[in-house]
Design a protein around this nucleic acid. Structure first.
Length: 704
DNA sequence: ACCTTGTGAATTTTT
DNA sequence: TTCACAAGGT
């Protein structure tokens, strides 16, 4: 056993650091607490909250004041609430929830800001149309720009007439849209030459119209236009319907705070302490709000404190404040912690080298050795026809015996993309089945949330439907599942024993190779009668929406391929093929997807993205790396060419891309408690020096 | 030879 | 949404 005995010296140091934080809190100093991976950041935050309650709680209660604790995710909110226990004095929430609570009752100024935002957007669009010379914008509006005012009005009229056709054929090939809009083509031949630009023009003038109409409605106090609403379910503003989403909420919040001193006063007086978790991920607008509150409080001698807790090296998203905290909020007192409570010495040594910023961590334990870190370069064997994902699986499997991997001691394998996670977890067809649909091609950025989220409330309509089916399938195929978790209680209560046993028998007879086959077998047993418990169960599962397999099929078809041109035989054929292919995927494969989503994976090896494991820790970690990521063809290769290379100017190492790569490497490698392996899939000979500067030795896989 | 146009492919995560 | 590239036109 290791990592069991605390070093007295470091234990004392840890206590001292905590006391330093308390002293600053007691003196109302705004602070920034920085600590690397595994240092116990959340512990420090929770203890600080407890300190405030213990030493200042009575005063807070007397003045009816509260403490605000802001987290980055709902998951973190839950975690902190759990560690903190019940406290009436502390409001733990995400920034969005808290900010909306603070500003939602000030609708008058909020609507004024909203109106200003609409006006700003209108001005931007008018600028794009008429005078923007940006080579990316100008060509799109060139044809429209050449039209006279009268012709523009005529164009607008004819488009308004044809709106239904326009939207129906929006995603059809260019010629189809042209054919549908022949009237427009005849009167304005130039404008339909480039369909991409045409759509841009039409979308812009339509939006202009809506925004202008919205301003008029606000001015005349029309019903529904006297208040702004915050919509948290999707990240998209619908400004002309008075709906804002996450980013705009922060923007409005910042404007409101900076414009209205009375709001600053209200916040400071009600919430004298604000502690922020994971400050590196916090939006600039939020830090700006904090700075303004802090400045206001010192100007008028109010007691107020902001505490930032985090680690700039773990900033892996571009919209967070990252290392710019001191620039936006100057004058913070720094408290640092260079201890590590998570990993073995070998891992700590490696992550210290990655950081390379004179903040070397030391293990808090005296028995901290016993881990291992090795870097492997993958040497492709020309004869063996295996692809990268097979190589990854083979590599991982080597360690199953070596490290005694089991259900209880899992191996966690980190890769860069969800696509690869799906392939390695062996539900590639489910993933591609969804990403290949019209809906997920059009909204490709929704795929990860709607198809792969372990937060069930975020699943898309069809993924959710398939999840319910698989949930049912998995329960009936496990003989130990209690009846009431298969059949809803309201149905059970009114059932006779005879009816129930018929239902159970029917469930047992359900079969099918594929998910489509399984649903077909469900509808073979379904008769729609109220007396059949089985049919009631089916209605309950599908919300009564489907009475036959055809209903079900049509629903899947319509949701995944909305608004397709059903008149076109070839389109119809290819869409039908795609839907049946999706429904032909085996229950086994869908089962793996289901257990991934439900967080019930039974495999000894689990796959995750680098980004997805932030904040987590695992005994055994394999990090899979390659040159490219996203649009960047040489993200990691160029990082290793820079690192440990004295001829590269320092300013190059300060560039955003370099820092982001470094942070990703840091976050992924610092998840390991004991064993860490890195497997690099591309040729590393051009940057082996950089790799050696962090990992010492380069091993080869399968061999050199 | 150069420009325009249309098509298809590409990341991660949170609220 | 943004970018790269192929196809086709001038």
């Amino acid at each position: 056993m290791s990592l069991t005995t605390l070093k007295p010296e470091y234990q004392a140091q840890e206590k001292e650091i905590q006391n330093t934080i308390y002293q600053h809190i007691d003196r109302w100093d705004d602070i920034v607490f920085s600590a690397g991976a595994g240092a116990g950041k959340t512990y420090a935050l929770v203890e600080s909250l407890k300190h405030i309650v213990k030493h200042h709680g009575r005063r807070l209660s007397e003045h009816n004041q509260k403490v605000i604790c802001i987290t980055y995710t709902n998951a973190a909110t839950a975690e902190i609430k759990e560690r903190l226990g019940d406290s009436q004095l502390i409001f733990v929430s995400t920034i969005h929830e808290r900010l909306w609570e603070l500003i939602k009752n000030h609708q008058k100024p909020l609507v004024a800001i909203h109106k200003g935002n609409l006006a700003k957007k209108i001005a931007e669009m008018e600028h794009d149309i008429s005078t923007n010379a940006d080579p990316k914008v100008e060509p799109k509006f060139r044809v429209y720009r050449a039209l006279s005012q009268e012709r523009r009005a005529e164009f607008e009229d004819i488009i308004s007439d044809k709106l239904d056709i326009y939207y129906r054929l929006y995603d059809s090939p260019a010629n189809k849209l042209r054919d549908g809009l022949t009237d427009v083509g005849e009167q304005f031949p130039d404008i339909l030459k480039n369909v991409g630009n045409f759509k841009k023009i039409v979308d812009t003038i339509l939006r202009l119209k809506k925004y202008k109409a919205c301003i008029e409605k606000i001015d005349s106090d029309l019903d529904g236009y006297t208040e702004v609403r915050y919509e948290s379910r999707f990240n998209r503003d619908i400004l002309h319907r008075m709906i804002i989403s996450h980013d705009t909420l922060l923007e409005y919040g910042q404007e409101l705070v900076s414009q209205y001193d009375i709001l600053k006063k209200i916040i400071i007086d009600s919430f004298p302490y604000i502690l922020i978790d994971e400050f590196q991920d916090t939006n600039t607008a939020v830090v700006t709000i904090m700075r303004q509150l802090s400045a206001y409080s010192s100007k008028f001698g109010h007691n107020f404190l902001v505490g930032y807790f985090g680690d700039e090296m773990q900033s892996i998203y571009d919209d967070g404040i990252g290392h710019n905290l001191p620039t936006i909020h100057a004058g913070l007192v720094s408290v640092n912690k260079f201890l590590n409570r998570r990993s073995h010495q070998e891992v700590i040594d490696t992550i210290n080298k990655i950081r390379d910023d004179n903040t070397d961590q030391k293990s808090i334990y005296s028995d901290c050795t016993g881990g291992s870190v090795e870097f492997y370069a993958y040497k492709k064997d020309g004869r063996a026809q295996i692809d990268n994902s097979e190589a990854v699986l083979n590599f991982a499997n080597r360690y199953v015996n070596l490290w005694n991997i089991s259900q209880e001691n899992k191996l966690h394998c980190l890769v860069l993309t969800n696509k690869l996670v799906a392939t390695l977890s062996k539900f590639e067809n489910v993933h591609s089945g969804f990403t290949g649909t019209k809906y997920y091609k059009r909204f490709w950025d929704r795929t990860n949330t709607e198809v792969l989220s372990t937060d069930l409330t975020k699943l898309g309509t069809i993924p959710r439907l398939f999840f319910e089916i698989m949930n049912f399938q998995s329960k009936i195929s496990n003989p130990r599942t209690p009846l009431e978790s298969i059949i809803d209680r309201t149905i059970l209560e009114n059932a006779s024993f005879d009816e129930l046993s018929t239902c159970i028998k029917k469930c047992q007879e359900l079969a099918g190779e594929s998910i489509g086959g399984f649903v077909e077998s469900i509808f073979n047993e379904y008769d729609g009668s109220q007396s059949s418990i089985f049919s009631q169960k089916v209605d309950h599962m599908f919300n009564g929406s489907f009475k036959s397999y055809d209903n079900f099929y049509k629903h899947v078809f319509d949701e995944l391929f909305p608004n397709i041109d059903t008149e076109d035989e070839s389109v119809l054929e290819s869409v039908n093929k795609h839907v049946s292919d999706l429904l032909s995927i085996t229950l086994e494969e869908f089962g793996r997807w289901y257990r991934f989503i439900a967080d019930q994976q039974d495999s000894e090896i689990e796959f995750h993205t680098y980004h997805g494991v932030k904040g987590l820790e695992y005994e055994n970690v394999i990090v899979i790396m390659e040159n490219d990521f996203g649009r960047n063809r040489d993200k990691f290769s160029s990082f290793f060419m820079h690192v440990g290379n004295d001829t590269v100017p320092e300013e190059d190492k300060g560039r955003a891309e370099f820092m982001n790569t470094k942070n990703l490497l840091y976050v992924s490698c610092s998840r390991a408690i004991r064993n860490l392996r890195v497997l690099y899939l591309d040729d590393i000979t051009k940057f082996d020096k950089g790799i050696k500067s962090i990992f010492h030795e380069i091993h080869c896989y399968p061999d050199c």
